[in-house]
Amino acid sequence: MMMIFGIPLQAFLGQLLIGLINGSFYALLSLGLAVIFGLLRVINFAHGAQYMLGAFAALLLLSYLGINYWVALIIAPLLVGLFGAIVERTMLSRLYKLDPLYGLLFTFGLALTIEGTFRYLYGAAGQPYSVPPALAGGTNLGFMFLPIYRGWVVVVSLVACIGTWLLIEKTRLGAYLRAATEDTVLVQAFGINVPLLLTLTYGLGSALAAFAGVLAAPIYQVSPLMGTNIIIVVFAVVVVGGMGSIMGAIVTGYMLGIAEGLTKVFYPEASNIVIFVIMAVVLLLRPAGLFGKDA
């Protein structure tokens, strides 16, 4: 059997895959945070809750309406995106003139409310969501066994990340978004409906989180607590990457996911905290973050 640094190749690649999967979720979530922060100057603490909502939406659509995974992958983000847009229009939009910390506190309260409600309704225990039949099973790549669903998650999240990047960098709507990030007042003076743009952005960010949630449902258990546990790690990812660039958020997400996976191979005890340690080191060496512009 082949060995890498005294570790069997199989185990090494297996953890690398898990790292890549976690990295996919970190990338999708930190991307959504960066998109929202870029325009709204709000750190969306409820991002984890919206991710959880996505997973629950998939689960509930399946068990009550018999709607399958593929449809849920589209409907769940739409529903959560709509919910996000409503929250933004009715409440969050009142906070833009204040210190950004109030946005963080508000979305923290929102996250607690959503999480508490789901805990009350469905209990704290996780519920399984089965892998869609078309993606069940696995394939032997010769050097390792790859469950097809996991491969699918990596590919789809990569596509979603690149799609979002293209949307923001290459389309007219993206150009409006970027312009509004630079100078809101000026963009408004050109006759663009900035409040609508803000609502759309928050909706888009929420939808991205929910999309990640649906993807995650068959891999992790669907539980009310799944969101907040991951969002704290994603915050660390965002501190490392800086929220200045969309691409930075994506790359950092994947990098830290892989770093976490590899730590599991070499020193399992530290795998929960390795991202926080990396964050601390980056703060020492490059306080503004790897891709960051602002302090």
């Binding site: 506190l105 508000f106 607690l112 409310t113 999480e115 508490g116 409600t117």
Partner: peptide, 9 residues
């Protein structure tokens, strides 16, 4: 948690 969250908001 629900009450805490609502009071927060």
């Amino acid at each position: 948690t629900i009450i805490t969250g609502v009071v927060f908001m």
